[in-house]
Design a binder for these strands. Structure first.
Length: 199
DNA sequence: CCCTGATTCGC
DNA sequence: GCGAATCAGG
């Protein structure tokens, strides 16, 4: 494998996004993290530092994209994680701003995610014991962000991806599986055991 | 032990 | 220029 323009560009982008060398190496394929680091240095973009040293706490990589002429104008309208956003609870006359459908349409609850959530095997037709385990484990979870996941960290998602309160378990995986022991327990269940849950 | 980036140096 | 080996750290 060689550093084609495309690969270099991808490297630059991912590095700029704060991805680790090993992650970049995986995505590129055919190179090791050493190769990536070496290249990064040769390209002279080792520092993600322009002038503002700053901040450990707020990774949130902003744009800072190079003035590429061929770039799209405004690619990201920014997607705020959509916070709680309470509705105007205390009802009352909320002025008169919506003429047309005058009805007191109180948007009761804001839909958490912009899109349907994946079928998270949440409580229901799951072995109660396994479920209990999960509850315990989630207290010990490392609460990793997406970017912190590796092949050895449990990838079980917790919370609503649309909010700040979202993270991945992150505990050591059961070798070969994508989840830790507890989460494997709820993720992979023999059909036999989920058979008759009565109600 | 898992991981991170930084540096060196033979190729 | 390249990247494995090594170093230095979390």
């Amino acid at each position: 494998m060689s550093w084609s323009d495309e690969r270099v560009e991808l490297l630059k982008r991912l590095w700029g996004e704060g991805q680790s060398a090993s992650q970049i190496a995986k995505e590129l394929g055919g190179v090791t993290r050493n190769a990536v680091i070496g290249k990064v240095h040769r390209l002279g973009l080792s520092n993600r530092n322009g002038s503002a040293p700053a901040a450990n706490a707020a990774p949130a990589a902003p744009e800072a994209e190079a003035p590429k002429p061929t770039d799209k104008p405004a690619p990201k309208p920014a997607a705020k994680p959509a916070a709680p956003a309470e509705t105007v609870a205390s009802g009352e006359t909320a002025g008169a701003d919506s003429p047309a459908s005058a009805a007191p349409v109180r948007v009761k609850a804001i839909i958490p995610a912009g899109q349907p959530l994946p079928p998270q095997p949440s409580a229901n037709e799951i072995d109660p014991e396994a479920l209990a385990k999960v509850s315990e484990v989630e207290k010990k979870a490392k609460r990793l962000s997406l970017m912190e996941l590796t092949e050895r960290t449990c990838k079980w998602p917790v919370g609503d991806p649309a909010t700040e309160d979202f993270w991945f378990c992150g505990l050591p995986v059961q070798t070969g599986k994508p989840y830790c022991e507890a989460h494997v327990g709820v993720a992979f269940q023999p059909m036999s055991s989920r058979r008759d849950r009565k109600r």
